[in-house]
């Protein structure tokens, strides 16, 4: 990612696939968490612009489409600092399992799929 490059959030970040360092899909970006700015009050000239803190996924998708906001404890976050490439998909710097956001995949793996015979075998 080149410094100085310009990126439009809705077009190039939101609704894009997030893949890990091995190219495995993890989540789609449902929303972005940006550092706080004063709300309902005038911004003094020279206020520093906010930065993207996290990619959000999970319950934020439902509320983005239908309205409302899920409680912050339910937000699945991936810190922006893990993003190494913004292209047709967003690439992260580590494998999927090292991120909190992959918990549903790991849960289904451990509790359902892993329990069915052959779940851990390569297809033959």
């Amino acid at each position: 990612m080149r410094a100085g490059r310009v990126v439009d959030a809705e077009f190039q970040l939101i609704d894009r696939q997030v893949i890990d360092s091995d190219g495995v899909p993890i989540v789609a970006v449902d929303d972005l968490e940006v550092s706080d700015v004063p709300w309902n009050e005038d911004l003094p000239r020279g206020t520093e612009a906010p930065v993207v803190e996290n990619l959000l996924s999970g319950p934020t998708l439902g509320t983005r489409i239908f309205g409302g906001r899920p409680p912050e404890s339910r937000w699945q976050r991936i810190a922006w600092k893990h993003v190494v490439d913004v292209g047709t998909a967003l690439t992260l710097d580590a494998p999927a399992d090292s991120f909190d956001a992959s918990w549903t995949e790991r849960w289904v793996r451990n509790h359902v799929v892993g329990k069915i015979p052959g779940g851990h075998h390569d297809p033959e």
Binding site: V24, V108, I116, G118, G119, H120
Partner: peptide
Amino acid sequence: AQYFGWSWGKFRRPAQAARFHL
């Protein structure tokens, strides 16, 4: 799987694409 951004594919063992297979 592709809409929600999950890992998918027959080339991955079921444990690596758990929600897809489920």
